[in-house]
Amino acid sequence: MTRLQAHDLTLGYADRTVSAGLSLAVPDRAFTAIVGANACGKSTMLRALVRLLQPRAGRVELDGTDVRRLRPRAVARELGFLPQGLVPPEGIRVEALVRRGRYPHQSLLAAWTPDDQGAVDAAMVAAGVEELAERQVEELSGGQAQRVWIAMVLAQETPYLLLDEPTTFLDIAHQYELLRLLARLRDEGRTVVAVLHDINQACRFADHVVAMKAGRVVAEGAPSDVVDAALVEEVFGLTCAVVPDPVAGTPMVVPH
């Protein structure tokens, strides 16, 4: 079953077309990694999936309905998104920022409910930032700040989590910590879609890999089925050997 699907999208900015005829079915309750060279249209596709970019043609459907025809708050209770390059408002504290994730669940006059607080507390624990609750976000390290933003998206309590290069600017230990968190969220029943730079990490953590080149999907499937030397050569223009990862047994790219 796939609730979230893109049909025949044409995507672009101003006079530049990034993708044409792009289709994708996001597997439910799985971890999907989108990989590809720089500027291949990964982020653009993700932005179209979460309604940030209006497709010139085609449509993104959730449960068979065009997301453009759903109320924004209704979509926001289904699809949580973590963009790149976030800047926190000046002077905001961690818990206050995480609370902002509750926006789609609140109405104009409704008070803050125990459900809201419960979601915020659980999100901070899941992201490992509960100790930082009273700290100013600007004072945190890059890795800590990234986890705070993830907590904000988790507080949104969406079945879907879409993340645009969430590991950028994190050191290697924090990268793996984050990927394990995403895998755990998948295990708890969420659908995770992440644009990842590192194909080895994608193979190791994702159930489903989508490889893109020049705005098209060139291969998708389980990492062990689709990731081989020919694909890496085609997508990244890199000659390499693909060997089993000595720890996880998943495909591992070793450049020549």
Partner: peptide
């Protein structure tokens, strides 16, 4: 009436839109 949306918009356009503003 716009106060909450204003707080949300301060998080950046992408977060504002994807949280329902």
């Amino acid at each position: 009436g716009q106060s909450r949306a204003l707080h949300q918009a301060a998080l950046g356009d992408a977060v504002a839109v994807t949280t329902g503003v």
